[in-house]
Structures are given as C-alpha cells and as structure tokens.
C-alpha cells in the first residue's frame, strides 16, 4: 500500500447567504497517496474550489477533519498553521488575479522566502529566486518586470514558482490551465508533470475539463452540488463510469475526432445551488433514471469494486 499523505474526513463548509445556508462542501471524504494526483472534477458551484481552499485552511471549515501527514490541521494554532503552509501550497486559476499588480516578478517569487525568513541573505535569496525562475522556465530578464507586462502562460509560471519556493510536498492546483490557450496549456501541464516526477509532489488537481483531468490524474473524484458522487482510478472512471452524472458528464465532452461519434446523454434542466438542500440525491431532479428511492435519503458513498466509490441508490 502506498503511504497516505492527505486524508479528508467528513469535510463540510457551509456559507450563510441571504437565501439560506449554502452547502458548498457537504460531507466529503477521500484520501490522497504520496506522489499521486487526485483530480477533482465538477461543474461550477459543485464546491471543488471551496473544498481545495478549505483543505488548505484558506477558508475555515464548518466541520470535519483534514489530516496532513497524520496531523489534524484544523486543530493547529495560527503559528503552527503558518509553519505547515510551507508544505501545502496552491496554484490559482487566474494568473491575472493571483499576482499582486504592484509587485515585480522577483518580489512575488521571493515573498514566501522573506515571510518565512527562509533565506535571510538577500543575495542568496535572489539566487534562489533565479533558480526557481529557471525551474519553471522563466527567463532571468523578467525578474524586474511586473506581471501585467507578461502573457498568461508566463504569469502562470510565476504562480507556480511562488508555490514551489518553499519546496512543498503537496499542491492544490485550482484550474491552473483553464484561463490559458491550448498550446500554452500543454506547456504548463508538462511543467507540472515534470515537477511532480522530479520532486515527488502530490497534487490535487481541480478542473472542469475532463480531458485534462484524465491526462493528468491517477484518481478522479467527481463532485456534484457539494457532494462526492464517484471516485475511481482514471482508467476505471473513463471506462466504466457508474454514476449517471459521471456518465452524462463524460458524454458531454466534445471530442476532437470526426470519426468518433458518441451517443450524448443530454441532461434535463440546469445546475441548482445547494442552498438548504433537502435530504435525497442532489442529482435526482436532472437524472434520467430517477426513482422514488432517490428522494428522501441521501445515497452513501459505497465501494463497489476496490478503489471505485459511487454514491447512487441504483448501484
């Protein structure tokens, strides 16, 4: 058995809204092994980004536990939390919004080192920044430029360098390539793969793009309106999706192949938002196989074959 790096147990994050309590993440549990990548997919409002941020405690959880290398991080004091942040990092979706426009590239990448007093000597620190820039493929000449002078791909490289600065063990990648053009997207995905191989990193890769997640992840977790509906290894999930939502989601990806005409499962209706949800399967209103059993009781996540979990009453 591989060693578990991260364990999420019954994680809940609710937000108060004017219409009621929004169950953004509702009782989600999973584990990630060291050196592996867990892909988290789902559509807008499914809680995937909230889950990622709550795991890093950028948002305070409503309840639940997250164990990182066996330590329950929700019980840590602010000081202890700051110390453990060195090991847990995040790469954001929007390379425009995630970089302070008033700081230069060098200042942004060097900031984690300054804040945590890792390299007090400014000259050595600068060298480390240059090293990091080289690792992520940023030319030395950009050290004193501002993010807005650079293109999206380079900005995302800055974000990656900043996350790498403290040599973390675990990185949450929150839609790191969604804002980028296809050819640049491939460059960034390759960079993330190379870094993982070289440094033995563990990733949670949050995305709505299923072809990217399949390429990138060992395991995939599918979320729908705050809940985990299916989790399996990538091969297994793409071969034998069990949950009706996963099936529809997979069939909805437009495939760039003109001979491959697949039957598309069209879903009824629209995504709701999980405000004061009633018990029962949240996918039921859009599901093509809905029965009376689906309403009233929330289906539990069952392991149907080793490593393949599904939350559906029909399975």
């Amino acid at each position: 058995m591989a060693e578990t790096l991260l364990e999420v147990k019954n994680l809940k994050k609710y937000f108060k809204t004017q219409k009621g309590l929004l169950h953004a993440v509702d009782d989600v549990s999973f584990t990630v092994d060291r050196g592996k990548t867990l892909g988290v997919v789902g559509e807008s409002g499914c809680g995937k980004s909230t889950a990622g941020r709550t795991i890093l405690r950028l948002l305070e959880p409503t309840s639940g536990q997250v164990f990182f290398e066996g330590k329950d991080i929700f019980s840590l004091s602010p000081q202890q939390m700051r110390a453990i942040r060195k090991d847990m990092q995040i790469i954001f979706q929007d390379p425009y919004a995630s970089l302070n426009p008033r700081k230069t590239v060098g200042e942004i990448i060097g900031m984690p080192l300054v804040l945590n007093k890792l390299i007090p000597d400014p000259r050595k620190r600068e060298q480390r920044v240059l090293e990091l820039m080289e690792t992520v493929g940023l030319a030395e000449r950009f050290i004193n430029t501002y993010p807005h002078e650079l293109d999206g791909g380079r900005r995302q490289r800055i974000g990656i360098a900043r996350a790498m600065a403290m040599e973390p063990k675990f990185i949450v990648c929150d839609e790191p390539v969604s804002a980028l053009d296809v050819s640049i997207q491939a460059q960034i995905l390759n960079l993330l793969t190379t870094l993982q191989k070289k440094l033995g990193l563990t990733y949670i890769f949050i995305t709505h793009d299923l072809s990217v997640v399949n390429y990138f992840s060992d395991d995939i977790a599918v979320m729908y309106l705050g809940q985990l509906v299916e989790k399996a290894s990538s091969e297994r999930l793409f071969e034998k999706p069990m949950h009706p939502y996963t099936q529809a989601l997979l069939s909805a990806i437009p495939v760039p192949d003109i001979d491959h005409k697949q039957e598309r499962i069209l879903l009824k209706g629209e995504l709701a938002s999980p405000i004061n949800p009633k018990p029962g399967c949240r996918f039921a209103p859009r599901c093509n196989y809905v029965t009376d059993k689906c309403i009233g009781k929330t289906p539990e996540l069952k392991e149907i074959t080793p490593g393949h979990f599904v939350a559906c009453t029909l399975v």
Binding site: E43, S44, H208, L210, A248, L249, S251, A252, I253, P254, R264, L266, L267, E270, L271
Partner: peptide, 8 residues
C-alpha cells in the same frame, strides 16, 4: 458555460 449545459 458548464460542460453539460454546453452540450444542451
């Protein structure tokens, strides 16, 4: 739009 909505 989201994938399932895009399909519609």
């Amino acid at each position: 739009l989201d994938v399932t909505i895009q399909a519609q």
